[in-house]
Design a protein around this nucleic acid. Structure first.
Lengths: 330, 330
DNA sequence: CTGAAAGCGCTTACAG
DNA sequence: CTGAAAGCGCTTACAG
């Protein structure tokens, strides 16, 4: 592959000047520029970004480590991140942790070796020491997205779902539901804990409790939602409504309910955290709590770039909202 | 950030030796190695992959340009690619073309500047000259995945849906459907054309034709599926069954059908190309043509690595299969 | 407006 | 088993 030297030779000019036209440096005579451009075209030259990055200490690349690419919420988030980043002249490299801490750390390490300019993470788990260490070392700026790790000093761009969870509980209560259960995310994730806390708080407000059997621990994957729901339905007094704290666990819950020949909402009401297009078309359409996903992704990129460029970077908390459909009753 | 020089100084050794322990070169005395490892740990040193790549002319990175990250088929494909690549010691950088040729080319260029070792593409469009040019120059090996561009000399890893489409038509015919319509993908994509051809061929086999009004051009996005379906339903004699050639257009079709207060399959039968987990839970569950997505992704990576390492690389054609559910009738 | 030269952080023959 | 040195392909003060 042609290098800058080849271009220089072909244009009868020094590599320094070629570099200048590559970088739109103003101090180049128009005809010189034209000669260089011609040489570039003739040789099909493409600048070597690796060499440039080594020299400039910048890769114009952002790393994004998400918990699960197969979760439509994270896919939408990744897309929003990519869109905003591209608009700002950055590209983004995505690492899919697949809800596995080890895989998350693998991606973080790989991204750091690749010398990304900044890191956006939605941590799978708060127990690995790697992320706190990276955030502390300040070699590469870190911004948390959606999920965060307590005690780590990095901006957090997230959604507060508390009010929406309260709205959901009110909605269920108004529809006559009194036995409400929740499929929680991992206790090692911030969202896992927050959603349960919000739910428990809202229940208390309506004079309801959360019996031990009505709280099942999931891992944000469909299969865990299925298993949790199976346990609920095996209870002597099963819940009349189930709140799955992400869309994949809701999918698993539907699997189990349907597998038993039961119906939503007649036999069990169902609601999910995170709204996705498919929920409009499930049987029945699912009541969900919607996050402003695009805004979340855009804000996160802006925050990271602010950090990169030395500007103050406050955390951002957006608000989720309840989208009632038919899955909790009429 | 600490460099190899810092490590060398700290360990009281040359950078060459540090490099050797970094690369597991056998010719290093155990105690020297230990000293180096200690220095690395003390400094929190992380090798600079950018510098290494410049020197070795390898990035151990594969580029993957997919048509649309919001399409669950491509997400699943991307995940399969990433899994296989990681297993082989490569990481993958994904570019989302969003079904836009210009964006596709943008990503291809960015990936080439980044000096990826090889490129996996599911082309959005066959009209841009960039991809054929890249494939021809042989600087970086290219493998087509799912979709391909005729006349370009690169291995193609794809699924043949012909038999499954025929099965679908037979299935619809057996259920009494005689007015079958198709929402096609772009004519600038290989899959767009193949699926229509297969459909038309199968119709002929059953003595049916494809009137002009029963073929609508979509762009593999939900909204185009909605519009196409609206046009079908506005016809004096609307089709009794609609085949959407990807899952997002099927989603749009459902939107439109539901929006008119009509029902699937009672008023219109619906089937889709590409099976995804949500189809089990739509109302009604959707009949779909399933591709062996994982195998597709894995094969593509293996093919690309074969190419990278100079081995012969045949194209691979896998087979799709019909998954009948309730959306075409009982 | 242009060029010579240093240097980014590595790896790897070559010598010892 | 270890080190000195060249070189990967760029950018950028510095000089002219």
């Amino acid at each position: 592959m042609a290098s800058i030297k080849d271009v220089a030779a072909r244009a009868g000019i020094s590599v320094a000047t070629v570099s200048r036209v590559l970088n739109d440096h103003p101090a180049v005579r128009p005809d010189t520029r034209a000669r260089v451009l011609a040489a570039i075209a003739e040789l099909g030259y493409r600048p070597n970004g690796v060499a440039r990055s080594l020299r400039t200490h910048q890769t114009h690349t952002l790393g994004l480590v998400i918990s699960d690419v197969l979760n439509p919420f994270f896919t939408a988030l990744a897309r929003a991140v990519e869109d905003e980043a591209r608009g700002q002249g950055y590209s983004v490299v995505i690492g899919n942790a697949d809800e596995q801490p080890a895989l998350q750390d693998h991606h973080v390490r790989t991204l750091l070796e690749r010398r990304i300019d900044g890191l956006l993470v939605s941590p799978t788990d708060d127990s690995s020491p790697l992320l706190p260490e990276v955030a502390a070392r300040s070699d590469v700026p870190v911004v948390f997205l959606d999920r965060w790790i307590p005690g780590v000093d990095a901006p957090v761009i997230r959604t507060d779902g508390r009010a929406a969870v309260r709205d959901l509980v009110a909605h269920l209560h108004a529809l006559g539901h009194r036995r409400l259960a929740i499929i929680a995310g991992p206790t090692t994730t911030s969202t896992g804990n927050e959603r349960v806390d919000a739910f428990r708080g809202a229940l208390a407000e309506f004079g309801l409790g959360l019996p031990a059997g009505y709280l099942e621990q999931g891992d944000y994957q469909a299969e865990s939602g299925r298993r949790a729901t199976a346990r609920f339905l095996d209870l002597p007094e099963p819940p009349s409504a189930v709140f799955a704290t992400d869309n994949l666990m809701a999918l698993g819950a539907m699997d189990e309910i349907r597998g038993r020949g039961l119906r939503v909402p007649d036999d069990v009401a169902l609601a999910a955290f995170d709204d996705i297009p498919w929920f409009l078309h499930t049987d029945p359409p699912l009541t969900a709590i919607a996050q402003p996903t695009e805004e979340l992704g855009h804000s996160a990129v802006r925050a990271l770039i602010d950090l990169l460029e030395g500007r103050a970077t406050p955390s951002v908390t957006l608000t989720a909202s309840l989208v009632p459909r038919r899955s909790c009753g009429e």
